[in-house]
């Protein structure tokens, strides 16, 4: 693979490349404004036009440093950042609450984050709640009809990708030659921790995408809907996916979207073959005893 340009650490540039020219209004979503520049500086939220349509943008700023919570830098999502992102989602829901499903504004998540805040204060106060709050808000917006597309431009690492990305309807990613990283851990670290030699793991990963790092493995598992081959391709790809998501929701096919939809995609692409078998068997086993658990009348 030839090394090409990278978008890593360039979340703000990516916003400008994706949305309509000069349309990004940072810090305002519907009636909600984010006025304090020192609040959650690692999270960039706002409203833009995309192909003429109003969209909410949520991204990470890799150059920001949170003075109050020094573990937040380089795109890490800290407590303030997680809750700020959740507020951005709730503000989008609120702004469109009277609108029919077909007119709910899309949310575009620009993903380049290496992790959730890993500090002592974070554990004392509960970083797990901040990242969980944002995910629940995204799931609520997705189920309410807002199309959500995650665009991976750089790092989509482990819990941070769960937080910012994996609750989207569709996930698209710049291909591996842009240096995009999607993983829980690099294979070298996996090799050290599970004590299997790297060459063997590399060889095995050719046939099984389940532990190796990179967007192509996630594509095979159904964890990423589409790989994007050019930087210019980001904008039209996102527009295309918003359209497809709207169509699926209008057709009552929401089950084909989001994490559950990607589970089915993982089976179709033969990356996750056991998952559907387990589910099928459990359904049969429960159906056989369900009557026992219904109210007795």
């Amino acid at each position: 693979m030839e090394a090409t340009e990278t978008m890593m650490g360039r979340g703000r540039d990516a916003i400008d490349m994706i949305v309509d020219a000069d349309s990004f209004n940072e810090g305002t979503i519907g009636a909600k404004t984010f006025d304090d520049p020192e609040f959650g500086p690692g999270a960039v939220v706002g409203t833009a036009a995309l192909n003429g349509e109003t969209v909410t943008i949520i991204a990470s700023d890799a150059n920001a440093f949170n003075e109050k919570f020094p573990v937040v830098y380089a795109g890490i999502i800290g407590m303030e950042e997680g809750y700020k992102m959740a507020q951005a989602v709730y503000a989008s829901l609120e702004a469109d609450k009277a609108k029919p499903v077909a007119e709910k504004r899309p949310l575009v998540l620009i993903v380049d984050t290496p992790g959730n805040g890993p500090g002592k204060v974070e554990e004392i106060f509960g970083m797990n709640k901040a990242t969980g709050a944002y995910q629940l808000a995204l799931a609520e917006a997705r189920l309410a009809g807002h199309p959500i597309v995650a665009m991976v431009i750089g790092r989509a690492i482990s819990g941070a990708f769960l937080c910012h990305g994996l609750q989207a309807d569709h996930i698209v990613s710049l291909d591996a030659n842009f240096g995009t990283m999607i993983h829980v851990m690099p294979l070298t670290s996996v090799s050290r921790i599970i004590r299997k030699d790297l060459e063997t793991l590399q060889e095995l990963s050719k046939g099984n995408p389940v532990f190796a790092a990179g967007p192509r493995f996630f594509y095979a598992l159904g964890g990423v809907e589409e790989l994007v081959g050019t930087i210019e391709g980001m904008r039209p790809t996102i527009i295309e996916h918003i359209k497809a998501i709207r169509a699926a929701k209008a057709a009552g096919e929401a089950e084909k979207l989001g994490p559950w939809g990607r589970g089915q995609l993982g089976a179709e692409r033969e990356g996750r073959k056991v998952r559907p078998e387990v589910i099928k068997l459990m359904n049969q086993e429960f159906a056989a005893v369900a009557e026992k658990y219904a109210p007795s009348r």
Partner: peptide, 12 residues
Amino acid sequence: LHESNAGLLAHA
């Protein structure tokens, strides 16, 4: 970690 990608997707 032995099946980290599948585990991550299951969390979502």
